[in-house]
Design a protein around this nucleic acid. Sequence first.
RNA 1: GGAGAGGUGGCAGAGCGGUUGAAUGCAACGGUCUUGAAAACCGUCGAGGGUUGACGCCCUCCCAGGGUUCGAAUCCCUGCCUCUCCGCCA
Length: 425
Amino acid sequence: MLDPKRLRTELDEVARQLARRGFILPTDRIRELEAQRKSLQVRTQELQSERNTRSKSIGRAKAAGEDIQPLLDEVASLGDRLKVAEAELEEVQAALQQIYLGIPNLPDTSVPDGSDEEDNREERTWGDIPRFDFEPKDHVDIGEALSGLDFDAAAKLTGSRFVVMHGPVARLHRALTQFMLDVHTSEHGYRETYVPYMVNSDSLYGTGQLPKFAEDLFHLEDTDYYLIPTAEVPVTNLVRDVILEADQLPCRWVAHTPCFRSEAGAYGRDTRGMIRQHQFDKVELVQAVRPEESFDVLEQLTGHAEAILQKLELPYRVVTLCTGDLGFSSAKTYDLEVWLPGQGRYREISSCSNFLDFQARRLKARWRNPETGRPELLHTLNGSGLAVGRTLVAVLENYQQADGSVAIPEALRPYMGGVERISPP
RNA sequence: GGAGAGGUGGCAGAGCGGUUGAAUGCAACGGUCUUGAAAACCGUCGAGGGUUGACGCCCUCCCAGGGUUCGAAUCCCUGCCUCUCCGCCA
């Protein structure tokens, strides 16, 4: 959520910045509601004040043994007037809140203008795109030849966009997870964290998935529980309603969780293979930091995710998302895109974002600033480090051999019992 | 699933329906003292919001949401959560 004070004082400027990402701010409506809010709030508080002082004097009179009936008659209508005023105020505030919760974050000035991923800005590339002296297959063919990926079985068990993994491929998937967790905990200073895979709606409001993106989520019937679309939700919500001391920052968490996404509106996109699944595993990096540090931390955090790709020797590029591709809560996002020989192009494997105080305001996530002595909003960031399923895809495709086997990246071999390659049975 | 107890400030822990946003203790912060530190003593010390040029004034919040009342941390209802015992279970 944006700062309501800023929406009052700099409404047109905010609207201009939001227009960069194609969001039309209803400025007239906001101005109208804010004017109503102001007068209603003043009136309500005056009535409350009157109630308080009169009630206190009744208390005093009663204690003094005086007749309080005349005083009671005086306040007879006050309660009703107050109730009306409070109800009106609440209505206006709810209307404002509804608008405010639907406003995306402001894009940082360094974010390029654009409408979709075509306009994302490439920052750098790493690694050499592999050349094959045979026609490279995609992970579906490779995985099926290895008897390691079974999409038909998953379709039977559940439906489309799920996968069953077997044998060495399943182990490779697990190895990737362990490897990522180990690197982030031992080399990058993150604290390993285990969280629920279901969260309540408060948590989803906190990180910004609700109220706008309910259709992307799996909701458990007759409950307030949702399957998490990313570990970002439970992990970032650790700081909800918390005031951290300065020496507790930065907080760095790494969590491995499955992620569940309905992929509503993705009909027909990436239907083949495990690029786009309803359930996939991800190792997520989350940080809560001092405001002045967040942009530096974004660079570091992106580097932490890149380190995994580098250790796995997977070629990738880094792009800055343009205003039109930016996520709802993010002020700036770097995507890491890994090279997939089966598709002959780069595909997103990590998304690293700085949310500034946007999530923190919804979460009431604060820290005590020693300079002011006051609780102030902190900044939150997160990034995939990495999406495990897509990393498996990238390993299978980039390390495939002419004979249908797949070499195991050096860094993963300790996690694979020393196995150097996996071959079709 | 059954029975009971409870949710108050960073923590601990009081709080007859009436100047209680909340005693007290600890912690924290500032000061005195000290060569320095500790101890002792003095003081400050919850959060959010409205209004104001400013000093200030005002409002809200004692798990959440309703209700009773002139007045609710205190009474009533509902929900959530925690704890204890029994049952069941990985």
